[in-house]
């Protein structure tokens, strides 16, 4: 296997992740062919709570990446930061600006803004664990979505989390 992972490589891997988010952000129509009748995230949206939950989870992951990059050296921080960037994209995709921004995730906790003083290796392990948990969570959360397009975005968020966990694990293994 090749052994160089450039930022471009990481971003390419993120195609699985970000293409869906970008598309999702541009539409509010259901893939089942039934237009969404309510404002996504609005008071009448049956997926309002789910959107808030997933958005809060993604916000927490963004915060975790931000904290991790502070303890990683130079190029590693840049690369890891690019891996984590998609969480902001998914947060925006699942919860439009008009929706509630209540920062309560699936676990009921608020987004983390700091990471205790840890080594770079520990920081990566924390990210791997967080991405692995996020992948599992998105798979189950997607089943709760009423809107098919929201479901697709959540599924793609899960694929991105799984891919990130694999990429970060590969880094840890070397």
């Amino acid at each position: 296997m090749p052994t160089d992972l450039s930022r471009r490589d990481v971003l390419r891997l993120g195609l699985v992740v970000t293409a869906g988010a970008g598309l999702a952000a541009c539409t509010t129509a259901s893939t089942s062919g039934t237009p969404t009748q309510t404002d996504p995230g609005g008071p009448e949206d049956p997926d309002r709570a789910l959107r808030a939950e997933v958005a809060a989870d993604e916000a927490r992951l963004s915060a975790l990446y931000a904290a991790a990059t502070k303890v990683l050296p130079g190029v590693s921080a840049t690369t890891v930061s690019s891996v984590g960037q998609r969480h902001a994209d998914y947060r925006a995709a699942v919860q439009p600006a008009t929706a509630s921004t209540s920062p309560v995730g699936a676990s009921g906790s608020t987004p983390a803004s700091t990471l205790p003083a840890v080594s770079a290796g520990t920081a990566l392990k924390v990210l791997v664990a967080a991405e692995t948990a996020a992948a599992a969570a998105r798979a189950t959360q997607s089943a709760r979505a009423t809107d098919a397009e929201l479901a697709r975005v959540i599924v793609l968020a899960g694929t991105g989390a799984a891919a990130a966990a694999a990429a970060l694990s590969a880094g840890r293994a070397r």
């Binding site: 296997m1 090749p2 052994t3 160089d4 992972l5 450039s6 490589d9 990481v10 891997l13 990683l72 050296p73 190029v75 590693s76 690369t79 890891v80 080594s119 770079a120 290796g121 990566l124 694999a166 990429a167 590969a170 880094g171 840890r172 070397r174």
Partner: peptide
Amino acid sequence: AAPVWNGAL
């Protein structure tokens, strides 16, 4: 995909 951050570990 291979790491550029392996030196950190």
